[in-house]
Structure formats: structure tokens, C-alpha cells
């Protein structure tokens, strides 16, 4: 078998190789290292690249990838799983979305791919990661969360032709009801869109909420759905579970708050909202109602602000537009 070498993780044959990839350097000169796990099957097959914590406080994805890796056995695996459960390590440490060491605009790692070897901290991180991804990956799955623990939706890069079709196959096997065939002109700089344009079918999962806002059930369910994707890709034996019909959206709308204050949401992820529907209530510091927040578009709630406090410009609601049952 060919040698797969990602940082200090070196795989020369069937088995599990673990190591660390250097993606930057800290002010004291220490390397920023991120974990890499390569699980290589005894039989040939595709290479599925999965990563999590692109945003440092989206821990659910890390736990899902860990759960999945622990369940894999090289004896029964066809092909290779490359998992990088924590990309944005310094943000992970600090329980925040972006690196505390990034002093410039552009600290969102998922807008920095394919990265730059001589750019800002986050651009250099993206470069170090993407170099390896492009070299090894046949498929990409990127694990995210939104804000609240009831988040359950997914998106695949809908590049016309084979890349989009393969992305849809993965989305069907994963089986979340709310799914966006993502138009190629959105999410520029995401690893999903960047990789898809380089010919790698790519998929983002949004499961659970920020920080501790996720359950062990979500971790187990998501890991099982990832195994179903691997059955679909013939990397694991067994019948592919049919999770049923999906809603496919034409696009999404991210709505930012234009009002600050204490906030109580009135909708849950997966709810259908009409234009103008009350989605939450604002209160002032004395507890007086300070107005309602309304849905500016009809569609399906993909994410909703958890409150309890909000400043202007935060993501108020994320709506899947024009749901079509497929």
C-alpha cells in the first residue's frame, strides 16, 4: 500500500495510525498541532476525509468523529478514513469560534480555504490543512454545529455534474430531512465548496449546538448516520438504511439581529415558519417586553438564536428557503 503521511501520522498498511499535524506557531514558539487519525482498511476503497471543530466551539462534531473512529475496524473497512477531529485547536482551547491568536479580519477558518502559505494565522492554518486534504481525499465531510441542541440539517456542494450527484448520494445516505443542495456561488472559502470545485464531493453536517449544547444521543445518532454514508460508499458492509424523504432547499437566508437585548426564542429547528411569524421575544433589563422578532422569509428553521442575551448583528435565524419534498 502507498504510504499516507499527514504530519506525524504515518500509515503504511491496514491499521490505525495517529499523529499530529503542525498548522502554525504560537507566540512562545511552540507549534500549533492538531490530531490526525488514519484508519486504513485491509481492502482497497475510497479515502473519506472528515474534520471537525473548524469553528473551535463546535465540539459536538469532534465527539461524533471520535465515536465513529472508535467503532471502525481495519479488518472490516474498505478504503481509508482520515479524521481530523479538531482543526481550530487554539479556539477549541478557549471555547470560541475563531482563534484567539488571529488579530485580523478573516478569522473564520471556514472562509479561508484553500488558504495561503504566507497569509494571516488562519489562512496559514487553512493552507496546511487543505494541502493534505487535496492530496488524499476522495470525499469530504465537515462537521459543524449551529447554536441550539436541536440543530439537524446538512448541505452538499451542488456542483453540476458528477460532483454534485455524488454529494447528493452522501446527503441521502446521511438522511437528515432538512438538506440544502448548496449553490456553487455561496460559502466561498469553505472547505466544502473549495474541495468540491477541486473535484472532491463534499458535505457539511450541522448537528447540535455550540459548546456543551448537544446530547450523547445526538453523538451516537450522527456517528451511525456516518456509518450509513460509509455503507453507501461501499466502505462498510451492510444494507444502507433508508432515512426517508428529504426537504431540499433552493438556498438559505441568514438573518442578523438589528436589535439587542434579552431574548427568548419561540421556534425550534425544523419548524416551518411563514413570513412575518413571531420567532422570538426581546425583553429589556427590567423584564419588560421590548418587541418581537419576526421571520423575514417563509421556510424551515435551520438555526435559531438561543438567547438568553443578544447584541446586534448576531445570527437571529437561519432559514431554509423553498422546501421541496424529494
Amino acid at each position: 500500500m502507498d504510504t499516507i503521511e499527514i504530519g506525524t501520522a504515518v500509515s503504511k498498511g491496514p491499521g490505525v495510525a495517529k499523529g499530529r499535524l503542525k498548522i502554525g506557531e504560537l507566540p512562545d514558539g511552540q507549534p500549533i498541532l492538531i490530531p490526525v487519525v488514519v484508519v486504513r482498511g485491509a481492502s482497497e476503497g475510497p479515502t473519506l476525509w472528515m474534520h471537525g471543530c473548524v469553528h473551535g466551539n463546535e465540539y459536538c462534531g469532534t465527539f461524533v468523529l471520535h465515536e465513529l473512529i472508535r467503532s471502525l475496524s481495519p479488518q472490516t473497512l474498505k478504503g481509508t478514513v482520515i479524521a481530523l477531529p479538531i482543526l481550530n485547536m487554539t479556539a477549541f482551547q478557549k471555547n470560541q469560534r475563531m482563534s484567539p491568536f488571529e488579530g485580523y479580519n478573516g478569522g473564520d477558518l471556514n472562509r479561508c480555504f484553500p488558504g495561503s502559505a504566507t497569509g494571516t494565522l488562519t489562512q496559514q492554518m487553512a493552507h496546511a490543512i487543505y494541502d493534505q486534504l487535496r492530496k488524499h481525499a476522495d470525499y469530504l465531510i465537515d462537521m459543524h454545529t449551529a447554536l441550539t441542541d436541536d440543530v439537524r440539517w446538512a448541505l452538499f456542494a451542488n456542483i453540476p455534474g458528477e460532483i454534485g450527484r455524488k454529494g447528493e448520494g452522501i446527503a441521502r445516505a446521511f438522511g437528515y430531512r432538512s438538506t440544502l443542495p448548496a449553490p456553487p456561488d455561496i460559502l466561498a472559502g469553505s472547505s466544502m465548496m473549495t474541495a468540491a470545485k477541486d473535484g472532491i464531493p463534499s458535505f457539511i453536517i450541522e448537528a447540535g449546538g455550540k459548546g456543551p449544547a448537544f446530547s450523547d444521543e445526538t453523538v451516537r445518532d450522527t456517528a451511525e448516520r456516518l456509518r450509513n454514508v460509509m455503507r453507501h460508499l461501499s466502505m462498510l458492509d451492510g444494507k444502507v438504511t433508508d432515512y426517508g424523504k428529504q426537504w431540499h432547499f433552493s438556498n438559505f437566508a441568514w438573518v442578523h439581529s438589528t436589535q439587542g437585548g434579552m431574548f427568548q426564542r419561540q421556534v425550534r429547528c425544523g419548524d416551518r415558519v411563514e413570513k412575518g411569524a413571531v420567532i422570538g421575544n426581546y425583553f429589556d433589563l427590567h423584564g419588560h417586553p421590548a418587541g418581537d422578532a419576526h421571520a423575514p422569509h417563509p421556510g424551515i428553521v435551520l438555526a435559531i438564536h438561543p438567547g438568553p442575551v443578544m447584541s446586534t448583528g448576531e445570527t437571529l435565524i437561519h432559514i431554509g428557503l423553498d422546501p421541496q419534498e424529494v
Binding site: 495517529k18 492538531i34 490530531p35 471520535h66 473512529i69 472508535r70 477531529p85 477549541f92 456543551p212 448537544f214
Partner: peptide, 28 residues
Amino acid sequence: YYDVFGDLVEEAKSPFSGVVLAIGGGPV
């Protein structure tokens, strides 16, 4: 406790008997 690779590294035990009033939620 798990390490960054997902391997179990330690089971945290209570040094006291009693009732759990609060538990660290993690996840880190």
C-alpha cells in the same frame, strides 16, 4: 476524560459520598 484522538484517558471518580449538586458539563 478523552484525549484529542477520542481515546479514553481517565475515569473521574468522586472523592466523596453524597448527592450531585452540580457536574462539570464539559465538553472540554
